[in-house]
Amino acid sequence: MSVSLPSIPREFLGGWQRTLYAEPATPPYQQADTTTQVVWLQGEQWHADLRLPANGPDFSGITCLEGCDRRQLEWLAGLTAFAGVTQIEGERRSLLCTWHRFQNLCPGLEKDVGLLQWINGTTLEERHPHDHYVEHWQQISTEAAEEEIRCDEQGHLRWLQLGNHAMAITPRAVTASSAALFEPLSDLTDDALRWRASLCFNYLQRDQDGWQVVLSTQPWRVGERLSASTLN
């Protein structure tokens, strides 16, 4: 896939974890979340983002999508995980960021945009343009890390690596029923839910033994060992 967007400012490159989501953007918050596990990897153009709520169903004994019951499938298909390219415009004190989502586990029709400003040297604030929400992001790796990108023949991002952090993505099978992406989960058959949930995002960290899955949109994969070469 040919992308003509310019590279984003270097201070935003690296890995980020979310420490706060709150609505509205200013206190007193009506709703706040500090328990969802969220990782955002940002390269020079590509991004990948994975979000796992803490109140998910039990997946003990599950080893594949075929083994999931209806409740588990709806939870998996409704997760937030996406990848694409990032566009940042404006000056440092007034930055507008757009995350163009090319792959999306649970897509919607609303554009993903936020206003960015620094809280300190390693913490970034993202605010909805109309103050609907605020998010705080803590940097977990920096722009000095090596970046490696792998895409498939269809232009889908398969591997985004920033130093010792990586996101491995397995795309859905091509199907004629892509309209199912926008239907309510409760209206879908179990087979359609499995297809929706088959877009898999794995967040990995590298140690002396190689790459290990730390978070995944398919929870039974946590702990697995993977490498970029397995995605070919």
Rank of each mutant, 00 (worst) to 15 (best):
P171T: 01
W118L: 01
H156E: 12
L50F: 09
N164W: 08
L95D: 01
T98S: 15
P24C: 10
G56I: 00
E147D: 12
M167D: 08
E110K: 07
W46S: 13
L160G: 08
A179F: 12
N232A: 11
H132C: 03
Q17W: 02
R101W: 07
L73C: 06
E91N: 02
C64Q: 05
Q42N: 15
W137M: 14
A145C: 09
S94C: 06
A81D: 03
L204K: 08
E146D: 05
T34W: 04
G223M: 14
S227K: 10
R127E: 07
H136W: 04
I88R: 03
I88K: 02
E143F: 07
Q218T: 05
R196P: 10
I62C: 15
V174R: 15
W16K: 09
F182T: 08
S227I: 01
R18S: 12
D209H: 12
A77W: 07
T170F: 12
R127L: 11
R10W: 00
C64Y: 00
S2R: 15
R127S: 10
I62G: 08
P6C: 05
L96E: 03
R70W: 06
E11D: 06
P107V: 10
A228E: 03
E74T: 07
A166G: 14
G84H: 09
Q103R: 09
S141M: 02
S178D: 09
R206Y: 02
Q154V: 00
L188V: 01
G84S: 08
L109Y: 09
A180Y: 06
F82Y: 15
R172G: 07
T189I: 03
R93C: 00
Q17C: 12
R150I: 14
E110C: 06
D58A: 11
E126V: 02
T189D: 04
L95H: 07
E74G: 01
L76Y: 04
T19V: 04
F59S: 01
H47K: 11
L160F: 05
V38I: 10
L231F: 15
V39M: 09
F12A: 03
A54P: 01
F102Q: 14
Q42A: 13
V85L: 04
L79P: 00
G43K: 12
P184I: 05
W195M: 14
R127D: 02
T142Y: 00
T230M: 11
E11F: 00
Q42L: 14
E147K: 14
I62A: 12
Y21A: 07
R150L: 15
H128N: 14
G114D: 01
L124Y: 03
R92N: 02
S177W: 06
I140Q: 10
P129L: 02
D58L: 02
L181M: 08
E135C: 05
T26P: 08
D209N: 13
G14W: 01
T170V: 11
T230P: 00
V222D: 11
L124V: 09
Q42H: 10
P219H: 01
T36Q: 15
G163M: 11
W46P: 04
R225A: 14
G163L: 05
G155M: 03
L215Q: 13
C106K: 12
L124S: 10
A144V: 13
